[in-house]
Amino acid sequence: ALLAATLPGVGWLFGWRRRAGAGVVQPGEAPAGAAQDPANPIGGGLLAGLSLLLRSRYLLGIGLFVILLATASTFLYFEQARLVAEAFPERTRQTQVFSVLDATVQALTILVQLFFTGRMARRYGVTVLLTAVPLAVTCGFLVLAMLPTFGVLAGVMILRRVGEYALLRPGREMLFTVVDPETKYKAKNVIDTAVYRAGDAVSAWVKTGIDALSGHPATVALAGAVLALAWAGLGWWLGRRHEGQLGPSAGPPGRAAAAQQR
């Protein structure tokens, strides 16, 4: 019933798109083929999404970004399971702790999305959305390596989850505004399902391997910090590529003005 209730909203958005000309691309404003009437069918075969992914450095970069996101999340979730079991042996208390964490994450996510996400995107561009959270997670892993306590982990988990829902997810969706409809609906589907879940599985194996070789929690945290730093660098590259494809008028005001002057 809840899913069916979204259908009138979808119809209204398509109507608004046609009335406002949001799907009309003028020469020089965006890459050719970036917009298409949603009423028209999308071509391509069953494996088109996978082939599009493998042929594009931009899409491969998004795929690797998703894998690094899954890796950071998996490392933290494994540590959360270990530290929660140590700090709260009783199952009832564990459930209460998880419920408090979830409620905190959801409340903060709503606030950030309402008051900060849109302003950050307009003022600084998608690059900041894609790099701020990985850099914060890098710092969180380093602190966790020095102080492997539940309190530190809870702070890092809240930071990571709020950042993912309120900043990273909108930023990732923005990356697909410069591609054609077939790429948006097929390659994106491959990235969001197969690539993401493969990243979950591989990162779990990597975490298990690190534990077997080292046996010290700090090693996992340091490995997570290194991967999160690479994640931030990739987010910066993707953001710059995205803004470059949109053109100088789409970036933050200061950068756009400078680009027009050049």
Rank of each mutant, 00 (worst) to 15 (best):
I158K: 06
S56H: 09
T149D: 06
P8V: 07
H216G: 12
R240E: 15
R93C: 09
G11W: 08
L83W: 10
L64G: 02
G61N: 05
G11D: 04
L59F: 04
W16F: 14
F176I: 03
I42C: 00
G155I: 11
Q94N: 14
V84M: 08
L47A: 13
A204D: 02
Y165E: 06
V100R: 04
P252D: 05
S51F: 15
V133N: 05
D200G: 07
D200A: 03
V100M: 03
G33K: 08
N40G: 08
V105D: 00
V126G: 01
S73G: 05
T138R: 10
G209P: 01
V143R: 05
D180Y: 01
P148A: 03
L3R: 02
R17P: 00
R197C: 09
V112K: 02
Q94H: 14
T71I: 03
G239C: 11
R160C: 08
R57F: 09
A87C: 06
S99A: 04
L246T: 06
R93I: 14
G171E: 05
V195T: 11
C139P: 05
Y165C: 06
V24C: 02
L246G: 03
L108I: 12
L129D: 02
G61D: 01
G171L: 02
G125L: 02
V10S: 07
L114D: 02
G118S: 14
T109Q: 01
F78C: 07
T92R: 10
D192P: 00
G163W: 12
V178M: 01
G151W: 04
A32F: 05
L238D: 03
G118H: 02
I191L: 11
G247C: 09
R240G: 06
L68P: 00
G140C: 09
G140A: 07
L53S: 01
W16Y: 15
K188M: 10
E29R: 05
R82I: 07
V112A: 13
V179C: 02
T74P: 06
V97R: 04
T92C: 01
A194T: 10
P148K: 06
L53K: 04
L129A: 02
Q26D: 08
G215R: 10
A257H: 11
R17D: 14
Q80N: 09
P170H: 14
L114E: 05
Y124H: 12
L83F: 13
A256F: 07
V179D: 00
A132G: 06
D211P: 06
L53H: 03
I210V: 15
L108Y: 05
F65C: 03
V66F: 14
T219Y: 06
A198G: 09
T109C: 01
A218V: 13
V24A: 11
W16A: 15
A221V: 11
R91C: 13
V190N: 09
I191H: 07
A154Y: 08
A32H: 07
R55Q: 03
A198V: 12
I110Q: 05
A136E: 01
A250H: 05
E29Y: 10
F115W: 15
T109F: 00
Q96E: 11
P248H: 13
A166H: 09
N189I: 13
K188S: 13
